[in-house]
């Protein structure tokens, strides 16, 4: 492995400076569970690794009436061991508690999951259906990017030279909101999704009509897919808004999601299997999201 320096800045500015100096030859790590594996696998070489866990903004968690904001280096366990976050953001917790095993969850987090931009990322779909935003700081200041616009290709993101994701901000879900994430893997634990679906629903006060919804797909395209949305566009074609909560409407959403998927054949699954899984997982996650939404009415 090519020798690299270890840098552990204590401020966002310090990290941005090092990342800017090295460009593609440096990467931040939080858990390191993707970057170190990719380095050893020879996917790329680096001159510097920037450990961002000593930067307070990247490690803090705020959960209040405005919503949830967590630093990009916060590990999965810090989310799912927090009773408040677990109760209020179960769709995000679904993913945080199934990424890797306990050892991985001690280190890996959703910020890294997002920046790694794997097509199969479990954590990105849930963030999309909660309308989460990545807060980014770089040499030219700060900006915010909606999570659905963040990944541009496998392993590629909107981050420019020197830019760092500082935190992920999730708006407080209104009453009648519910979300869920499920994936299919051939094992019980510790595997990469053959297909995954995150769904969120916003129900009216009766709990019988969809006011809004989001369905995000994992492992069935080069990036996570938000159904009914063309990345970078302003339009969004909501698959369920205005429809009554019924088997028929949920089945139609499953078909629509199936059509939105653009999977490939590989060692984990075939195109046909993946399309089928998207249909099934969409119906299941909408069902669970409805259940959760009604419980919160």
């Amino acid at each position: 492995m090519h020798p690299f320096e270890y840098v552990a800045p204590t401020s966002v500015e310090g990290a941005v400076k090092v990342l800017g100096e090295h460009g593609e030859r440096a990467r931040p790590i939080a858990g390191g569970t993707d970057v170190l594996v990719q380095l050893r696998g020879g996917r790329y070489e680096l001159d510097a690794i920037v450990d961002v866990k000593n930067i307070p903004e990247l490690m803090q968690i705020r959960n209040d009436s405005d919503g949830l904001e967590f630093g990009a280096a916060v590990a999965c366990y810090q989310l799912y061991e927090d009773p408040g976050i677990s109760a209020e953001y179960p769709g995000i917790i679904d993913a945080a508690s199934l990424i890797g095993g306990i050892q991985i969850q001690s280190r890996a987090g959703l910020g890294g999951n997002l920046c790694n931009a794997a097509p199969s990322a479990d954590g990105i779909g849930p963030l999309i259906v909660y309308k989460a935003v990545a807060k980014i700081t770089g040499p030219n200041g700060s900006r915010e990017v909606a999570v659905e616009d963040f990944c541009t290709a496998p392993g590629r993101t909107v981050l420019q030279r020197g830019e760092l994701v500082v935190s992920i901000s999730v708006p407080k879900p209104p009453k009648g909101f519910g979300a869920a994430y499920e994936r299919f893997i051939p094992r019980n634990e510790m595997d990469i999704a053959v297909a995954g679906v995150a769904s969120s629903v916003q129900l009216d006060s009766s709990g019988h009509t969809f006011e809004a919804s989001r369905i995000a797909l994992a492992s069935v395209g080069p990036t996570p897919i938000l159904c009914g949305y063309e990345p970078g566009s302003s339009g969004y074609d909501d698959p369920l808004a205005g429809k009554s909560v019924s088997e028929d409407s949920i089945a139609a959403a499953g078909k629509l999601a199936r059509g939105s998927a653009s999977p490939i054949n590989d060692m984990r699954g075939t195109i046909e299997q993946r399309r089928h899984l998207v249909d099934v997982l969409t119906r299941r996650t909408i069902g669970l999201a409805v259940e959760r939404a009604r419980a919160a009415l």
């Binding site: 552990a8 390191g32 594996v37 450990d51 866990k53 366990y77 050892q103 001690s106 280190r107």
Partner: peptide, 24 residues
């Protein structure tokens, strides 16, 4: 990071020590 043979306890959390850099 798949097999857990290198598991150690780091500040009260179990981790795969192969995926921790020594300076950390």
């Amino acid at each position: 990071g798949n097999c857990g043979a290198c598991t150690v306890d780091l500040d009260g959390r179990i981790v795969d020590s192969c995926l921790v850099l020594a300076p950390e």
